[in-house]
Amino acid sequence: MIDQFPDLLTQISAAESERSAALCSRLADTFEDDLLEHDGFPDAHLNFFLALLSKKQYYDKPGVWNFILAVNNSRDALTSAQCERITTAFIDNFAAYQDKDLCFAVCDFVARNLESFKASDLLQQLKRLELQKAADLRGYADEGLYILGQEIKRAARNATN
């Protein structure tokens, strides 16, 4: 799949909005399946994912959020350095994200995949970045903080069982 990444990026950037969501969903499923074939999280896959999160011609496309779900399902394969690169991409680009599903997917990913104190700090940063957005694109960081609270409660329950 690695040799297909440039072509996949071209397909995503060229896709019309009406068909972008279906295309991204299909490609994200293939991406997720390919990740399962590797012991770790290959750098080429991470670079492809970071391009989707960091370049307007990709993150403005409906359906790109599906790739966050694909990475979420392979989160155990991520190294701490790779996770740091992802969170940096979120911080650098979140204010520009105009897709509600992408905004929610970012905050959900943070809440479920980072240590609670790191997740809380990052979600607070994202909340401040949301202030630069239109009113209908705000509140996703608060949803992430709610999810984080639920994750903390669940972990506490599991620790006592």
Rank of each mutant, 00 (worst) to 15 (best):
S13M: 04
A14Q: 15
A14E: 13
A15R: 03
A15H: 03
S17C: 02
R19T: 12
A21P: 02
A21R: 15
S25N: 14
R26A: 11
R26Y: 06
A28D: 03
A28K: 02
T30M: 12
T30R: 15
F31R: 13
E32K: 15
D33P: 07
H38T: 10
H38N: 15
G40R: 13
P42E: 04
P42M: 08
H45T: 03
H45W: 01
N47F: 00
L53W: 00
L53M: 06
L53E: 00
L53G: 00
S54L: 00
K55E: 09
K55Q: 10
K56I: 03
Y58A: 01
Y59Q: 03
Y59S: 04
D60M: 08
K61E: 02
V64W: 00
W65H: 13
F67D: 02
I68D: 01
L69Q: 09
L69K: 12
V71R: 08
V71T: 11
V71A: 10
N72V: 00
N73Y: 08
N73K: 13
A77M: 04
L78V: 02
L78M: 04
T79C: 08
S80R: 11
S80D: 09
R85Q: 13
R85D: 02
T88E: 12
A89I: 01
A89W: 01
F90V: 02
F90A: 03
I91C: 05
D92G: 06
N93I: 01
F94N: 07
Y97H: 05
Q98H: 10
Q98P: 00
D99G: 09
D99L: 09
K100Q: 13
D101M: 11
C103H: 05
C103D: 05
C103Y: 00
F104A: 10
A105I: 05
A105C: 03
A105R: 09
V106R: 07
C107H: 10
V110Q: 04
V110P: 02
R112K: 12
R112C: 10
N113H: 15
N113V: 04
E115M: 07
S116R: 06
F117I: 14
F117P: 06
K118G: 03
K118H: 14
A119N: 08
A119L: 04
S120I: 02
S120L: 14
D121M: 07
L122R: 12
L122E: 06
L123W: 06
L123Y: 11
Q124G: 05
Q125E: 11
Q125A: 07
Q125N: 13
L126D: 10
K127S: 14
L129F: 07
L129I: 07
L129M: 12
E130A: 11
E130L: 12
Q132F: 08
Q132E: 14
Q132V: 07
Q132L: 12
A134I: 13
D136Q: 15
L137K: 15
L137T: 06
R138M: 11
G139L: 09
D142R: 15
E143V: 11
G144K: 14
